[in-house]
Design a protein around this nucleic acid. Structure first.
Length: 913
RNA sequence: GCGCCUGUGGUGAAAUUGGUAGACAUACCAGACUUAGGAUCUGGCGCCGAGAGGCAUGGGGGUUCGAGUCCCUCCAGGCGCACCA
């Protein structure tokens, strides 16, 4: 009987579905294991072969854990709010609710085709009101919480109100608080809430008609669509994620994330430790006003090297301090700066600046220091002003050279005529109380002195900003917020706030989103509804919690469920979410933990980033101004244009000419010049996309080879974290393997050849070697080498003509996570009546692997020359005597004396002569 | 510019603690079976060399009895950050 994968796979798909084989419930008798995939955005294009790579790996791992005795949670859902659905709606007039529905159905059928063990009873969709009700609920918790720096955690806002009204807090005394109007009190609280509204410069994208978070802007253009992004002052919602900077940073150490991912997060948070120092402004007119410039520096040790100050051109203080003579020049420079877009500033880093005419006073030497403004100092970082130390900072150095400002050398014995010096191991000079200290030691000494003299304080700065949480779009979660007539933002208690139906999705007035057009919805008895919607990362920041208890109507998830399923043990997904999604969901987790809603403060214990599968594009070469195509090897003889051709009409590199002629009407009359009777295409590794005609649909592969082959081939391509092009060549090898595996069980005539005879020692050894290898690979996510091992064990058992049930059944179970359909079929064929899903993963019995002898490679002077077999317990002396007698050893020693004899038991022998 | 990662046959790759480099596939070559082969099976397959043997893990250097693996340095490719004071 031939291996009929289509029949087998259809049969078991139905069986698993009807028997709810993948349904899981809390079972306190079993240890739990939570394997999660980053859920997909259900786009209209459906899945291509690149998408399932991570899903296959997690599916294999989840199945393995189940066989290994764990109660495994392995859910799937859809991140179904977002821009593309809305843009598709604008283009086609179809409502996003409808298209989302259709796309999800398509995704689910494609995923089921591959044979994933998702518990669909736990499916979540972020755009479903029963889900976003709880996204809004968690937003409400964030709104009703503040970060208490003393307890170092989030607390209900009521604890802050209590502080204000009993003891006062920070700049606000009890008396102040009590004298505030309701509006003033609410405005004050808004400055502490974890979800807050504020006016701020945001990334505004005109083309998309919305603001974007920092991680959604790349090099001054939108990540999605590459549209220009400008800074714009707008009232927006934000999450106070910066309060969690230190904990987000600290938490990384204990997590099993790829090092590169941790590095990206650290980079994004951008912690720098230093001091904030005040410089008095040495200006008679301002003397009474007590004005100072506050600067941030990581190098307070270089304070005696300051020769000028620089402020960001956007700072208000500039207008106050600029002298009459410099007014004109400063105004012109500011105009120049504001004329430059973000992109221009980044592309063209020429040195520019302008002197304000004002001077600051050095806090120690009391010398006058000129104050400049320049675009190289950013308003958004630190205090927006710096003390410039050209001797110790590259940018300051270039600026000083350019404008001919003094470069005092504060480093003993260092030549700074040509270059700045950033080495912290040099000794300081002309630095008063810091003289003789190494720079790295002087940092601490300088801060101590600065604090003692009350001219500044030690300070830690973070690069990242609070996360923008508003989008001026339709297809997202509405905020549960109503703005009362006296301008107070109030939570809506009744959730969900349903996303109202809209027929059109054009912008509202004044940069507002489409919801602003729905006046009936906006106007309520209590005031006006918030018309922004939440960003894409809102729903994905907590979905892993909802899977634990997806149908709960009273809570986002019961405590019992989140306590049991707990943290995600393994989270698999792309590295592109390293700083966005992962940081946000880590923050939400910490907030929920602080507020006592869940029992852990990190969502994901371990993360694996699967590589991207790119497309392997195919090209044909058309001779210029003709319909004549020449094969790849001949193209250099002509002037040709390379044209993308659909990979699906090529057999590897060879073009199927008939299909090509049918592909496009213009090619029906095409003529060809072949090499060896074939038309060979050119290739390139590119992103898989429709426009490059290199998209391969998993459904097609599955029709041709079956899901089991597809799953195994994706794993066989290489290590899971590596990016690689999809190339269908090679899939035959994996398919051949499955057919060969089938023939271990069945004769060519379709007779089962399994026997219940006892296995030989040799067979047992082969089996247990196999179990050991597979187990190791599983625990290390080394699935490509597992496939190799399956091929090895199959080849070995076939060579032995092994038909023992004892052996084959165990191998079958080890293969089940990879190839669930064929193994389920064979498991039943050999007499089992229960599903292989509930079998037990075999354990390696080391006693079968014990060897009495070892075949040692014998090296002479490090080069392997021969092999000799010795008993494991042979003494070193006996081995040495025997080895030295050996003819080949004698020959290679060429009569030299043995200087050294290296004997590594069970490994190798090296004779040095 | 800075940080992280990766460089191994024609191709995808393996080598788990420093111990026989190239497992397992694919491509290719030769052969068997066959009406047929795009089924199946057998053998070959890093490079040079007739052979003995020599040379080989991006280049160069080092540590070691022994290096793909550790250290230094340079080169190439990928990813991230990029006026962050």
């Amino acid at each position: 009987m031939e291996y009929n994968f289509t029949e087998i796979e259809n049969k078991w798909r139905v069986y698993w579905k009807e028997n709810k084989s993948y349904h899981v419930e809390i079972d306190t008798k079993k240890p739990k294991f939570y394997v999660l995939d980053m859920f997909p955005y259900p786009s209209g294009a459906g899945l291509h072969v690149g998408h399932p790579l991570g899903y296959i790996a997690s599916d294999i791992f989840a199945r393995y854990k189940r066989l290994d005795g764990f109660n495994v949670l392995h859910p799937m859902g859809f991140d179904s709010f977002g821009l593309p659905a809305e843009q598709y709606a604008i283009e086609t007039g179809q409502h996003p609710t409808k298209t989302t529905e259709v796309n999800i159905a398509r995704y689910k059928s494609q995923l089921d085709n591959i044979g994933f063990c998702f518990d669909w009873d736990r499916e979540v969709r972020t755009s479903d009101p029963s889900y976003y009700k709880w996204t809004q609920h968690i937003f409400s918790l964030l709104f009703e919480a503040w970060y208490n720096p003393n307890s170092n955690k989030a607390e209900p806002i009521t604890s802050l109100i209590e502080k204000f009204s009993t003891t006062g807090y920070q700049q606000i005394s009890t008396a102040d608080w009590n004298s505030f109007s309701q509006k003033q009190q609410q405005d004050t609280l808004m400055q502490y809430r974890l979800a807050y509204q504020a006016e701020s410069y945001v990334n505004w994208c005109e083309a998309l008609g919305t603001v974007l978070a920092n991680d959604e802007v790349v090099n001054g253009v939108s990540e999605r669509g590459n549209h220009p992004v400008v800074r714009r002052l707008m009232t927006q919602w934000f999450l106070r994620i910066t309060n969690y900077a230190e904990r987000l940073l600290d938490g990384l150490d204990a997590l099993q994330y790829p090092e590169s991912l941790k590095e990206m997060q650290r980079n994004w948070i951008g912690k720098s430790v230093g001091a904030e120092i005040q410089f008095a402004i040495n200006n008679e007119e301002l003397a009474d006003e007590n004005k100072t410039i506050r600067i941030f520096t990581t190098r307070p040790d270089t304070i005696f090297g300051v020769s000028f100050m620089v402020m960001a051109p956007e700072l208000d203080l500039i207008d106050t301090i600029t002298t009459a003579e410099q007014q004109q020049a400063i105004a012109e420079y500011k105009k120049y700066v504001s004329s430059r877009s973000e992109i221009e500033r980044m592309a063209d880093k020429k040195i520019s600046g302008c002197f304000t005419g004002a001077y600051a006073m050095h806090p120690f030497t009391k010398q006058e220091i000129p104050i400049w403004i320049s675009e190289y100092v950013l308003a958004g970082y630190g205090t927006g002003a710096i003390m410039a130390v050209p001797a110790g900072d590259e940018r300051d150095y270039k600026f000083a050279k350019h404008f001919n400002i003094a470069i005092p050398n504060i480093f003993e014995g260092v030549d700074i005529a040509e270059n700045t010096c950033t080495d912290k191991n040099v000794t300081l000079c002309i630095s008063d109380f810091l003289n003789g200290l190494k720079a790295k030691d002087a940092i601490h000494a300088a801060i101590k002195k600065i604090e003692a003299e009350t001219i500044g304080t030690a300070k830690t700065m973070y690069k990242f900003r609070d996360a923008g949480f508003s989008r001026q779009r339709y297809w997202g979660e509405p905020f549960p917020i109503i703005h009362t007539n006296d301008g107070i933002a109030k939570l809506v208690k009744e959730l969900p706030v349903q996303l109202p139906h809209a027929e059109t999705y054009s912008h509202g007035p004044n940069g507002k989103g489409p919801l602003a057009n729905l006046t009936e919805w906006v106007q309520t008895a209590d005031g006006l509804r918030e018309t922004d919607t939440m960003p894409g990362y809102a729903g994905s920041s907590w979905y892993y919690l909802r899977y634990a208890d997806p149908n709960n109507e009273n809570e986002f998830a019961s405590r019992e469920a989140t306590d049991y399923w707990n943290q995600v043990d393994v989270y698999i997904g792309g590295a592109e979410h390293a700083v966005g999604h992962l940081l946000y969901s880590r923050m939400w987790c910490k907030v929920l933990f602080d507020l006592g809603k869940i029992s852990f403060d990190e969502p994901y214990k371990k993360i694996i980033n699967q590589g991207m599968i790119g497309g392997s594009s195919r090209f044909v070469y058309r001779v210029k101004d003709s319909n004549h195509f020449v094969s790849f090897g001949l193209k250099d003889n002509y002037v040709t244009n390379a044209l993308h051709v659909d990979v699906n009409i090529c057999d590897n590199l060879e073009l199927d000419i008939e299909k090509f002629k049918e592909w496009r009407a213009e090619y029906t009359t095409a003529t060809f010049e072949l090499e060896d009777g074939k038309y060979i295409c050119g290739t390139a590794f590119e992103k898989m996309s429709k426009s490059k005609y290199n998209v391969v649909n998993p459904d097609d592969i599955i029709t041709k080879y079956g899901a089991d082959t597809f799953r195994m081939y994706e794993m066989f391509l290489g290590p899971i974290e590596l990016s690689k092009p999809w190339d269908t060549k090679g899939i035959e090898g994996v398919h051949r393997f499955l057919r060969k595996f089938w023939r271990l069980f069945y004769t060519d005539n379709g007779e089962l050849k399994i026997t219940s005879d006892a296995a030989t020692n040799e067979e047992l050894k082969t089996l247990h070697k196999h179990i050991k290898k597979i187990t190791w690979d599983m625990e290390h996510f080394s699935f490509n080498t597992s496939i190799a091992q399956f091929m090895i064990v199959t080849n070995e058992l076939a060579a032995m003509n092994c038909t023992k049930k004892e052996i084959l059944e165990a191998v079958l179970i080890t293969l089940a996570p990879f190839a669930p359909h064929i193994t389920e079929e064979l498991f039943h064929a050999i007499g089992n009546t229960t599903s292989i899903l509930d079998a037990q993963f075999p354990k390696c019995n080391e006693s079968y692997l014990v060897e009495n002898t070892f075949l040692y490679p014998i090296a002479i002077n490090g080069k392997a020359r021969t092999e000799m077999e010795f008993a494991f317990d042979a003494s070193a002396e006996a081995v040495q005597a025997e080895v030295l007698k050996n003819e080949i050893v004698q020959k290679w020693l060429e009569g030299r004396e043995v200087k050294k004899f290296i004997f590594v038991k069970g490994k190798m022998i090296n004779v040095v002569g």
